[in-house]
Amino acid sequence: MDYAIQVKDLNKSYGSNQALVNISLSVRRGELVSLLGPNGAGKTTLVKHLYCELKPEVGRINVLGGNPCRSKIKRMLGVVPQESEPYDDLSVFENIYYAARIRGIGRREAKVYTEETIESLDLREYRNKYVMDLSGGLKRRTLVGMAIVHRPEVLILDEPTTGLDPLARRQLWDILKNLKKEGRAILLTTHYVEEAEVLSDRVYFINKKIISEGTPSDLRTRFSYYYEVIDYTSGKAYKVKEEELKEFISKLNGKFEVRIPSLEDVYIEMISHA
């Protein structure tokens, strides 16, 4: 199997607080994987290991077949760290251009790459604007530009849509979908269930340890201990266990609907039990 990211038995403690417990996960090339977990679940701590801001105390990490601390591997990585901001006193163009240059790309090539990136992210009309004058959504888009300008094979985004308004969030989703189409491996962390569901090929539920893993629909069915039955006559919704479903429905007269729970329900269920 051709893996872009492989993590094996990763553990990390901050003093007496163990943030990560035996984490193992993988992302294949061309795959978009989400790490879904509440605040404090250890998502950022995990992600920081993938570009060597933190080094593993226990466990092994392999990115594109190598150690992510090597600069050769870092060259093939693009990262949008959590709550990051571009440089306020540089323009959109300059932020993206220097993100290419500091990775060792020469002037002329960096210019071409930057113009292409600006085009593909629809940032043309903001090209020469200073970042401090931009909205949150445009700042985030500039950050994505800084992460992809050197055409990395792996893209890592730590809560890229947190704090964005719904429109800006959807615009960023479209950008991520396009980047995935180009064949990149993408790892995304989020605490929005909807986001993980819409974008990912696979989801890891994480809360210090990996609680569960699967495609969004896998997870939904695996955790459907109960069905949601909506009785249109009374307008009430019921949670019904699978073995009691037939009997329950037979008692209803009039129209009804049976649903398996949403990923959101599964998520709430899971983090409240973990």
Binding site: Y51, K74, R75, V79, V80, P81, A99, L143, M146, A147
Partner: peptide, 8 residues
């Protein structure tokens, strides 16, 4: 963090 991710 961003800088470290680029190899600086």
């Amino acid at each position: 963090s961003f800088m470290i991710s680029t190899g600086i």
